[in-house]
Design a protein around this nucleic acid. Sequence first.
DNA 1: GATAATGGCCGAATGATGTTAGGTATCAAT
DNA 2: ATTGATACCTAACATCATTCGGCCATTATC
Lengths: 180, 180
Amino acid sequence: MKETDDIRPTTSAPQQIDAMDRRILAALVEDATVSYADLGKRVGLSAPAAHERVKRLKRSGVIQRMAALIEPKAVGKGLLAFVHVDTRGWGKSPALMAVANYPEVEEVHSVAGDTCMLLKVRTENTHALEGLLAQIYDAPGVLATRSYVVLSTYLERPPQPGITASWPRPKASLPVAAAQ
Amino acid sequence: MKETDDIRPTTSAPQQIDAMDRRILAALVEDATVSYADLGKRVGLSAPAAHERVKRLKRSGVIQRMAALIEPKAVGKGLLAFVHVDTRGWGKSPALMAVANYPEVEEVHSVAGDTCMLLKVRTENTHALEGLLAQIYDAPGVLATRSYVVLSTYLERPPQPGITASWPRPKASLPVAAAQ
DNA sequence: GATAATGGCCGAATGATGTTAGGTATCAAT
DNA sequence: ATTGATACCTAACATCATTCGGCCATTATC
């Protein structure tokens, strides 16, 4: 399993991803432990050919890395919440970005809309969430936060390689003049 | 790499996760392609011992699966957005849940707060987002949606095994009576 | 239109790694 | 003290990743 070729994170993918690459990606996103022989069989390639493709996808940065997906509840993170942070001025202050160092913080985005920053956090309970929120409030320029505590998660998965080619026409849309 | 032991998704983890398991999880979340020899070296175990631990973590469901993490932009998903969906009645209608079949939809949660459902979606552009929103609106009972389009992502990672033992006291908090 | 060059693939051989087996130490309960 | 269970180790084996050489298709060049 030693990747002798250096996987240096080169600049973003220059070449195009074809249908074969997409099938390989789909398989690896679902299960990254398949042998190259099985992977090749699934997509219609030999093991070395599949390996060569995967190596290229890694080198080009399309495959960032292989990761173990763990069950949050098992590691003491039963509470998931999305935190919207309203900030004065420009929200990306170093003090606010420092919360990314906590392992409870999984995502930090700046968003367009009525709020500046959006965090996805996972804590053991509401008490720990309060402790994290206190850290967020502690950052200068933070005006307010709104937390959306997740009650149930129906779907949660990493980025998928598939894309929807054409979106269905809405069937129950309001009549619009000149809707082509 | 063939896991001869069946990894049947048994009921949730019965036994406790110790510090060694946490270190193994931390290593595998970062890079699931390490050899068991390297993994053992990193956490202070032999290769078979590390393997045994990993096998147990998989069987107990702590490790759900190994997945390839791909760069969304490389597969034509440069636009990330969080969509809040307000619904009349109980939001979990089959028609709304059907949007989970689109590969653009990565997360579906029901949340507490002023909205009922929260989706994380990744599309190629705003036009595709519009097509997806049309599908959401098409579900009966959907009153309104609010979309937060991500401008920049500063952090995005899968669930981490680490937990913060004690949260720092906020340094700039308002004086509170009898704050112990 | 012939030919060289490139890219992608395959089959087979080799080396690294996953995996099993057997044995030892530690700890808890009998 | 003895038994049983658990977790670990070393060593051997089986499997797989990886490399190599050659083949075929396509494209560029003469």
